[in-house]
């Protein structure tokens, strides 16, 4: 059967030591059973490796940073669309999602470019600072947390928490504290870097397990693959991981997608305790960098997302292979300065 030609723009080409998901998503799309994609990379930095990976990415354009706002992004997408006639965009960065969600309707109606994203409400609800309320609302166990705005509030938390506990920044950073003094130390260090508030979180003993999943927006889970990281880089990123057979974890995933009517891809991060309890740590509203493991396990989520974005019906994946591993590797490409010059001065390559 001849595959249908299609043009898909993908972000997250930063396949570096702490990689964005773009390259994995593109590999998955290239294995689509139905489509023959032309891949347009959308990059922020001139050194994102994907820009130079011509066997995976057909052409790359620079786009404005999320901080430039929705209008600048729309303007740039219009320019790119004039040349490329985009059918679908798959954004892969947390920081850019807000703007793309805001543009979803306009892109679809004005330019006929489709996406398959969570709603703004879904996106906001699972933010780190809202996660505790999220857990309450959807009856998911979330480590107890409290936000602090000043050091003087530290004594107030001792009734609710036992040591050790986790001191977290608004966006990044998490440190374990074993005493009141340590909370204060971490508070000061983290708040200097990431500002206030500081989040105090219950420390849950156990091992981290993750799920990559995809919802169709009606509450149905189209696919879900659980994974445990086997080897972690000093940046806390998975270097290798293995797919799991864990019905309880899958049930929690299905329940969350059902309750939130999640639309699009998501990564759920859990701590599994020794008595088999699962605590939700984070929801990332996009594919994880390890999404290609799902493809290796028989569930091509990016392909399914692509079909849903174009309004096609997809069946749910009923199973995945367990015990499949991914092992990441790094690779030095040789790049001509001419290529760097092009992307730097013309904004495209």
């Amino acid at each position: 059967m001849k595959k249908t030609d299609i043009t898909i723009a993908v972000t997250g080409l930063n396949a570096i030591d702490s990689p964005g998901p773009g390259i994995s998503v593109i590999r998955a799309l290239r294995e689509s059973s139905y489509y023959n994609p032309r891949i347009i990379g959308l990059s922020y930095d001139t050194m994102e490796p994907g820009i130079y990976m011509h066997d995976l990415v057909d052409k790359t354009y620079q786009i404005p940073f999320p901080s430039a706002g929705v209008d600048n992004l729309l303007h740039r997408i219009r320019e790119i669309n004039k040349k490329e006639k985009l059918d679908v965009i798959i954004p892969n960065f947390d920081a850019e999602l807000f703007n793309f969600i805001k543009l979803e309707q306009r892109l679809s109606e004005d330019l006929n470019i489709k996406m398959f994203l969570p709603s703004l409400n879904q996106f906001e609800e699972r933010q780190k600072s809202n996660l505790f309320a999220f857990g309450k609302k959807y009856k998911v166990k979330v480590p107890k947390n409290k936000t602090l705005f000043s050091l003087s509030e530290i004594p107030l938390i001792e009734n609710d928490f036992t040591f050790p506990l986790v001191v977290k920044g608004k966006y990044y950073d998490a440190k374990i504290a074993y005493s009141r003094e340590q909370i204060a130390q971490h508070f000061e260090k983290i708040s200097v870097r990431w500002g206030l508030p500081i989040i105090i979180q219950e420390y849950i003993f156990g091992s981290e397990v993750n799920v990559t999943a995809i919802g169709d927006g009606t509450g149905r889970t189209v696919g879900a693959v659980p994974m445990r990281k086997q080897y972690i880089t000093d940046k806390g990123k998975a270097w290798s991981g293995i797919s799991l057979d864990d019905d309880k974890l899958l049930k929690i995933t299905h329940d969350i997608i059902k309750a939130t009517k999640w639309k699009g891809s998501l990564e759920l991060e859990f701590i599994k305790t020794s008595n088999e309890e699962y605590y939700l740590l984070e929801i990332n509203p996009r594919f994880p960098a390890w999404i290609y493991l799902a493809v290796g396990c028989g569930q091509n989520h990016p392909d399914a997302l692509l079909k849903m974005a174009l309004g096609r019906k997809v069946k749910s994946f009923s199973k995945h292979e367990t015990g499949k591993m991914f092992i990441r590797y790094s690779y030095d490409m040789i790049v001509n300065l001419k290529e760097f010059e092009k992307i730097s001065t013309l904004g495209e390559l």
């Binding site: 930095d45 001139t46 940073f65 901080s67």
Partner: peptide, 10 residues
């Protein structure tokens, strides 16, 4: 690297 590209500024 790391500097804003010309499409990326305000």
């Amino acid at each position: 690297s790391g500097a804003m590209n010309k499409y990326g500024t305000r």
